[in-house]
Simulated scan of single mutants.
Amino acid sequence: MGRYRPPQPKASPYITREGYDRLQQEMRRLWDRRAEVTQALAAAAAEGDRSENAEYIYRKKELGGIDRRIRYLQKRLPELTIAPDAPSNPQQIFFGARVTLESDNGETVEYRIVGPDELAPDQGDISIDSPLARALLKKAVDDEVRVETPGGSVTYYINAIDYNPQRN
């Protein structure tokens, strides 16, 4: 019997236009890949004993992974709401904002607030569901934001807000 895991909280249904397009492209690529894997699986199955056929076992697992991701995307895409490129008040931080922050020690960081389905922390994209993004919402330039992190409390000062989706 498996260990009980409580269900994950519902993720925010918001996404940028670019993120939505990427998910649709991913689903098209997965359908193409699924067709290739299915052909390879049929060829491996035709080779005989499936219990000792490594190619058959590998393709079966690969097909399962592809099918899981396709099912997820088929359920998630209709739930998503594409957010407008810029809010009515671009002086405040909302979904899609690229924010430049300065910490107490003078270190400058840049983040873009995006939906949970398009995270790229290495590129500075953070989820609107994250504690930092929630603390930043509706703030303006020169505001101070305090965020609780596992390492303790961190204070940031907002230096700039931009709604251009492209990196500077």
Rank of each mutant, 00 (worst) to 15 (best):
R134Y: 00
L101I: 02
E47S: 10
I57N: 01
R33K: 04
A46C: 01
S12K: 07
F94G: 11
D122T: 11
R29S: 11
R5H: 14
A45G: 14
Q74A: 11
R22H: 04
S103N: 10
K75W: 04
S88F: 10
I82A: 06
N168S: 13
E110V: 07
T38S: 10
Y157S: 09
L119Q: 02
A97V: 02
K138H: 11
R17D: 06
K75Y: 06
D143R: 07
L132H: 07
V147W: 03
E18K: 08
P78V: 05
G106N: 07
Y20S: 01
R33H: 06
G48V: 10
D104I: 00
V154A: 05
R167Y: 05
I15M: 01
G64L: 06
N164R: 13
P131C: 01
E148R: 15
S103R: 15
A46D: 03
L132I: 07
F94N: 03
P90C: 09
A135Y: 06
E107G: 05
A133G: 05
S88Q: 14
D142T: 09
D162S: 15
V154W: 00
Y4S: 15
P7N: 11
P78F: 08
S12R: 03
P90E: 05
Y163M: 03
A11V: 14
Q74W: 00
E107W: 02
G19P: 02
G115K: 10
F95T: 00
Q8N: 13
D142Q: 14
P116C: 08
T149A: 06
